[in-house]
Amino acid sequence: SEEEEEEWRRAKERGEEIIILGILWKPNDEEAERRIKEALRRV
């Protein structure tokens, strides 16, 4: 969703871990980033 995407962007800017759509994303975690982008597209 729009607000999840916004939340994720803010976490990326701050360089902090975030759990979004049930996926743990850490800074520079390209695999998780790809999965999150896929999940955001499906929503």
Results as ranks from 00 to 15, higher is better:
residue 16 E to H: 10
residue 9 R to P: 01
residue 38 E to Q: 10
residue 5 E to G: 04
residue 26 K to G: 05
residue 7 E to S: 14
residue 12 K to I: 10
residue 32 A to S: 11
residue 35 R to G: 04
residue 11 A to I: 15
residue 13 E to Y: 08
residue 2 E to L: 15
residue 29 D to L: 02
residue 39 A to L: 12
residue 29 D to S: 05
residue 34 R to P: 00
residue 40 L to M: 08
residue 15 G to Q: 08
residue 13 E to F: 08
residue 20 I to K: 01
residue 2 E to K: 13
residue 13 E to G: 05
residue 23 I to L: 05
residue 30 E to Y: 12
residue 29 D to E: 02
residue 22 G to T: 04
residue 7 E to P: 04
residue 26 K to R: 14
residue 1 S to P: 13
residue 21 L to D: 02
residue 27 P to T: 02
residue 43 V to Q: 13
residue 26 K to Y: 05
residue 37 K to L: 15
residue 29 D to P: 02
residue 38 E to G: 05
residue 40 L to P: 00
residue 43 V to G: 09
residue 33 E to A: 07
residue 3 E to W: 15
residue 11 A to G: 03
residue 2 E to A: 13
residue 9 R to W: 10
residue 4 E to Y: 15
residue 13 E to P: 00
residue 3 E to Y: 14
residue 24 L to E: 03
residue 36 I to G: 02
residue 42 R to G: 09
residue 5 E to T: 08
residue 11 A to V: 08
residue 2 E to F: 15
residue 10 R to T: 06
residue 37 K to V: 14
residue 38 E to F: 02
residue 17 E to M: 11
residue 28 N to H: 11
residue 3 E to S: 14
residue 41 R to S: 10
residue 16 E to R: 07
residue 5 E to N: 09
residue 15 G to H: 05
residue 2 E to Q: 13
residue 12 K to N: 04
residue 7 E to C: 15
residue 36 I to V: 11
residue 16 E to T: 10
residue 2 E to D: 13
residue 23 I to K: 02
residue 7 E to H: 12
residue 15 G to Y: 05
residue 36 I to L: 05
residue 10 R to S: 05
residue 35 R to V: 05
residue 25 W to F: 04
residue 33 E to Y: 07
residue 1 S to T: 14
residue 34 R to A: 13
residue 43 V to L: 15
residue 41 R to L: 11
residue 8 W to I: 05
residue 12 K to A: 06
residue 6 E to K: 07
residue 42 R to T: 09
residue 36 I to E: 00
residue 13 E to W: 08
residue 6 E to D: 12
residue 5 E to H: 08
residue 20 I to L: 04
residue 40 L to S: 00
residue 40 L to C: 06
residue 40 L to R: 03
residue 18 I to C: 14
residue 41 R to A: 11
residue 13 E to S: 12
residue 17 E to L: 09
residue 21 L to R: 12
residue 3 E to N: 14
residue 21 L to I: 05
residue 8 W to E: 00
residue 36 I to Q: 01
residue 37 K to R: 14
residue 43 V to M: 14
residue 29 D to I: 01
residue 8 W to R: 01
residue 29 D to Y: 03
residue 8 W to T: 01
residue 15 G to I: 04
residue 42 R to V: 10
residue 6 E to M: 09
residue 43 V to Y: 14
residue 28 N to T: 04
residue 9 R to N: 09
residue 7 E to I: 14
residue 4 E to H: 14
residue 13 E to L: 14
residue 31 E to A: 08
residue 18 I to A: 06
residue 20 I to G: 00
residue 1 S to C: 15
residue 15 G to N: 09
residue 3 E to I: 14
residue 22 G to A: 04
residue 21 L to C: 14
residue 34 R to F: 10
residue 2 E to H: 15
residue 30 E to W: 10
residue 38 E to A: 10
residue 21 L to P: 00
residue 17 E to W: 13
residue 14 R to T: 08
residue 28 N to R: 07
residue 38 E to N: 06
residue 8 W to Y: 07
residue 32 A to K: 01
residue 37 K to I: 15
residue 35 R to M: 13
residue 8 W to A: 01
residue 34 R to N: 11
residue 24 L to Y: 07
residue 11 A to M: 10
residue 6 E to I: 08
residue 16 E to L: 13
residue 20 I to H: 01
residue 1 S to Q: 13
residue 41 R to C: 14
residue 15 G to P: 02
residue 33 E to P: 00
residue 39 A to Q: 06
residue 31 E to M: 05
residue 21 L to V: 04
residue 29 D to F: 03
residue 12 K to M: 14
residue 10 R to C: 13
residue 43 V to S: 13
residue 9 R to A: 09
residue 19 I to Q: 07
residue 41 R to E: 09
residue 36 I to R: 01
residue 18 I to E: 01
residue 33 E to Q: 04
residue 39 A to D: 00
residue 43 V to P: 09
residue 12 K to V: 09
residue 19 I to L: 12
residue 28 N to Y: 10
residue 17 E to Q: 11
residue 27 P to H: 01
residue 5 E to F: 12
residue 3 E to T: 14
residue 2 E to Y: 15
residue 20 I to S: 01
residue 37 K to T: 14
residue 23 I to W: 00
residue 30 E to P: 11
residue 20 I to T: 01
residue 11 A to F: 09
residue 2 E to V: 14
residue 27 P to I: 03
residue 35 R to Q: 12
residue 1 S to V: 15
residue 13 E to A: 13
residue 2 E to N: 13
residue 3 E to P: 13
residue 41 R to I: 08
residue 27 P to E: 04
residue 40 L to Q: 02
residue 7 E to Q: 14
residue 42 R to C: 10
residue 25 W to L: 01
residue 4 E to I: 15
residue 24 L to H: 08
residue 6 E to L: 10
residue 15 G to F: 06
residue 11 A to D: 01
residue 33 E to H: 04
residue 10 R to M: 09
residue 20 I to M: 03
residue 33 E to L: 07
residue 19 I to A: 04
residue 8 W to D: 01
residue 40 L to I: 10
residue 28 N to D: 13
residue 21 L to F: 11
residue 9 R to D: 04
residue 38 E to D: 11
residue 19 I to E: 09
residue 4 E to P: 15
residue 24 L to F: 06
residue 13 E to R: 08
residue 31 E to K: 04
residue 33 E to T: 11
residue 35 R to K: 12
residue 8 W to C: 07
residue 17 E to F: 10
residue 13 E to V: 10
residue 31 E to T: 08
residue 1 S to F: 15
residue 6 E to Q: 07
residue 12 K to H: 11
residue 13 E to T: 08
residue 7 E to D: 11
residue 29 D to G: 01
residue 24 L to V: 08
residue 40 L to Y: 02
residue 35 R to D: 05
residue 9 R to I: 10
residue 40 L to W: 05
residue 40 L to F: 08
residue 35 R to F: 04
residue 42 R to D: 06
residue 8 W to L: 10
residue 25 W to P: 00
residue 3 E to A: 14
residue 21 L to H: 09
residue 27 P to V: 03
residue 21 L to E: 03
residue 43 V to A: 14
residue 14 R to I: 10
residue 32 A to N: 02
residue 27 P to S: 02
residue 7 E to V: 12
residue 18 I to F: 12
residue 14 R to Y: 07
residue 39 A to H: 04
residue 41 R to D: 08
residue 1 S to D: 12
residue 7 E to A: 15
residue 12 K to R: 11
residue 6 E to A: 11
residue 25 W to V: 01
residue 29 D to A: 03
residue 34 R to W: 10
residue 11 A to P: 02
residue 26 K to Q: 06
residue 13 E to I: 11
residue 1 S to Y: 15
residue 8 W to V: 02
residue 23 I to N: 01
residue 43 V to F: 15
residue 16 E to F: 11
residue 25 W to N: 00
residue 37 K to A: 10
residue 16 E to P: 03
residue 7 E to M: 15
